[in-house]
Nucleic acid binder design. Structure first.
Lengths: 107, 107
DNA sequence: TTATTATATTGCAATATTACGATAAACAAA
DNA sequence: TTTGTTTATCGTAATATTGCAATATAATAA
């Protein structure tokens, strides 16, 4: 068939996979790191930083927003994007927990 | 066009994106968590745990191996898979660093 | 050698993602 | 209102991913 069998997996596994999928493109990694590098959250110039056209950047931003990795608030004509620290913490803790479990293993 | 413009991004951004891509499917998240849950590393029964056919599981395992998230060593007829703790640590540190930088921010 | 068992590869159909031009929508300024 | 600025959406082409039947490969057992 070829259809992704996501219904066959647990909600938890799907949720984690969705987070990673949102970060699975270099443009989206670059966006996150750019948001991290600027002091303020007024980030209407992401398009100028990336080697992609405006509609493409808008699409990537939407995916990051849908995954709750970034937040966007309207600021007049512009939109103010910033990283959602809660989601970053969820991911960090996930890998921290994996690491802890690995410490008690042979491998 | 539609081709992924990965050459336009830095090696570092591509490398992180590749790690996340390897974890961007619920089956691959499930595999990692299963490897974590079993005591030994002899894991030739992953196929029986997942709701996917053997060639599909083999394909997912290959992707995790290529991304260095798991290691596989031959053990007679079977193959012994286990998580690569080095890669997990790289990811954990990446998000730890993001978290640290976020602490010194307004947002 | 001939099974048997375990994993990998091939080939292909179904679907998803990526990218961007064109266009729309929303708002501010003139 | 009209004009300019900023971001989003639509439509579509190119490419990538997912899943599996069929088959291949590799090692062991009989």
């Amino acid at each position: 068939m070829g259809v992704s069998k996501s219904e066959s997996f647990s909600v938890a596994h799907n949720e984690m996979a969705s987070l990673f999928k949102a970060l699975s493109h270099p443009a989206r990694v670059a966006i996150v790191e750019y948001l991290l590098s600027v002091d303020t959250c007024i980030c209407g110039d992401i398009v100028e930083v990336l080697p992609l056209a405006q509609p493409t950047v808008s699409q990537h931003l939407k995916e990051l927003k849908n995954a709750n990795i970034i937040k966007g608030s309207i600021d007049g004509t512009a939109i103010c994007y910033c990283i959602n620290p809660d989601t970053i913490e969820i991911i960090e803790k996930y890998f921290g927990s994996i690491n802890k479990q690995l410490k008690n293993k042979c491998c």
